[in-house]
Design a protein around this nucleic acid. Structure first.
Lengths: 193, 193
DNA sequence: TTCGTTTTGGACTGGTCAATACATAACACC
DNA sequence: GGTGTTATGTATTGACCAGTCCAAAACGAA
């Protein structure tokens, strides 16, 4: 009944996500988004309300992908310590893994760059945090029942610790810490479980 | 021999630092810097080469102030565990302490927002990281000689862990984690020492 | 084919960006 | 008081910003 789109909306969000991850929110212009997605301005503004709206779509997508991986890992049948170790080592690998990619974690970047000035985004980040917390907490609680985690440990506190460790690894990597240093951090966190 | 300045350069850097901390590098315009410092554009560009130059001055100043506090704490005669705990709790207090201040850590903000696209800044961050690492490592080594830290611990790895913990606390706080959650993180890190 | 609807490209909006130019003001020194 | 030098205020630069407008294009349905 009308002219159909000749692009895939999800693909566009994906390309925008890539752009935001590499340059951050402020430093990514709408022109950059046009080039990243291959779309014209009209298509972008016809599909998304604004740069901010597209950003939120990209952030949602990023969270969805990442949490999918996290949930799959936490629901796997690895021993709980291996789940946690794998989670942390994936972060190290991503931050240090060469290839010049260098695109950061959109959640960490957003928390630092925009959350303080954007309540809506801050709300999304908080929601996402609670989600991650609960999944990790559940895995730890299950491990506690198996005897892999000492019974006197507070698994909620440990889950907070693991989430903080991820953020800390990313920030340290951005400050120039190398793979060996980050590996040591992972060991230190594992020792606290 | 010529017209003297009627403002204090260090004061101006301090005001700029405040502006950059609250809004980040990209989102702080030169106009914002004029308003924050109370100077005209001419004075700013006459004193500093560029926005980027002023930012680096502000970053340097921030690092100097913060490291001064850190060094004083690490050279105090508290037991080493108390030094570390105090260091971490200051971060929690700063991130959670109400007052609506809400200005973040310029080092963490910069590491996340600009280091990937600015080699010079990345170099400064790396230098600063090494400085903090060494001071904390020395304090831990001293504590190890006193028997406050187990002899089989790798104090360099622990120092990396503590630095990462600071970054992690700040990121988690930005994601909405409350004081209690962050307090638990501090306990978890202390348990690893 | 024709019509109705939507997408698309590209020009365009007012506003803001970092940075500069230039004239004037304010001082130290003589 | 005059002179040289620097600081400052204001206007302005060209580039870019996010977002809008509109005409033309492309399709489904009739």
């Amino acid at each position: 009944m009308a002219r159909p789109r000749k692009f895939d909306e999800e693909r566009a969000v994906d390309a925008a996500m890539h752009a935001f991850r590499t340059a951050g929110y402020e430093a990514t212009s709408t022109q950059d988004l046009c080039e990243a997605t291959g779309l014209g301005r009209s298509s972008i503004y016809n599909t998304f309300k604004s740069k901010h709206d597209l950003f939120e779509r990209a952030l949602d997508r990023y969270m969805g992908e990442r949490n999918g991986e996290l949930f799959a890992l936490m629901e796997s049948d690895l021993p709980v310590r291996e789940k946690i170790r794998t989670h942390l080592e994936r972060v190290v690998e991503e931050e240090c893994g060469g290839k010049g990619d260098r695109q950061g974690c959109l959640v960490v970047n957003t928390a630092v760059e925009v959350s303080a000035r954007d309540e809506q985004v801050a709300g999304e980040l908080a929601r996402d945090y609670r989600l991650r917390l609960e999944v990790i907490r559940a895995a730890l609680a299950s491990g506690q029942r198996d005897g892999d985690i000492a019974a006197d440990k507070d698994v909620t506190a440990l889950a907070h610790l693991i989430i903080a460790a991820v953020g800390g690894l990313r920030v340290s990597a951005r400050c120039g810490a190398d793979r060996r240093a980050l590996g040591g951090v992972v060991e230190g966190v594992m020792a606290a479980l």
